[in-house]
Simulated assay, not measured.
Amino acid sequence: MTPKLTHFDDGGNAVMIDVSTKSVTARTATAKGRVVMQAGTAELIASHGHKKGDVLAISQLAGIMGAKRTADLIPLCHPLPLDSVTVTLTLAEDQPAVDIMATCKTSGRTGVEMEALTAVSITALTVFDMCKAVDKTMQLTNIRVIYKDGGKSGTFIAD
């Protein structure tokens, strides 16, 4: 049997999923991603030498703010009361890059994967925006959910 996309009714119209009958449970999701850059750009970030300010701190704040606005950005996404949003940024050791991880938590009827993905995406976009004047070659890569827990489908851990 072919899986059915859940955001469409039988007539093919877009719908917001009715979660009113689902149980409220504790839900957590973690996403990660990476911004790959030139070595000089990573050095500029590490030395806090960027004229726009602390790239990592500003990008972290943008990611938290982004998670809180997910339902405004993603059509058909339920607005969720977030209990916790954490965003961490680290300079990668294996290549010039910034690694981003975001974890979102809520008690609700639907998961927080979209909030975690939005946090990572907005964080990565902010790193790009702050550094684009010195590095137009940056790449936002490998943004994905790596962990999810709660709700009927249980726990997911990426390989």
Score class of each variant (00 low, 15 high):
A62G: 07
P81G: 03
T106S: 14
K152I: 06
S23K: 13
V19P: 07
D99H: 05
H50M: 11
L80A: 01
R144P: 01
T118H: 03
V85E: 06
V15D: 04
T88N: 14
L5D: 04
K4Q: 12
H48I: 03
V35C: 08
G111I: 01
G33C: 08
H7F: 13
R34I: 10
A97S: 10
T110H: 06
P81S: 13
T2W: 00
A158T: 00
L44H: 01
I45H: 04
I157G: 00
I17W: 01
T30L: 01
G154F: 06
V134F: 08
A97H: 05
T141E: 14
R144Q: 15
E93Y: 00
V36I: 14
T106L: 14
T28C: 11
S47Y: 05
T70H: 06
D10N: 13
T137W: 05
D54I: 08
K132W: 09
G111S: 09
C104K: 02
K148A: 05
C131K: 08
H48V: 00
A57V: 08
A158I: 01
I74Y: 11
C77T: 04
F128A: 08
G150L: 00
L89M: 10
A31Q: 09
T21H: 11
G40V: 03
L82G: 12
K152L: 00
M1A: 11
A46S: 12
T110K: 11
S59M: 12
G154H: 05
H50W: 10
A31C: 06
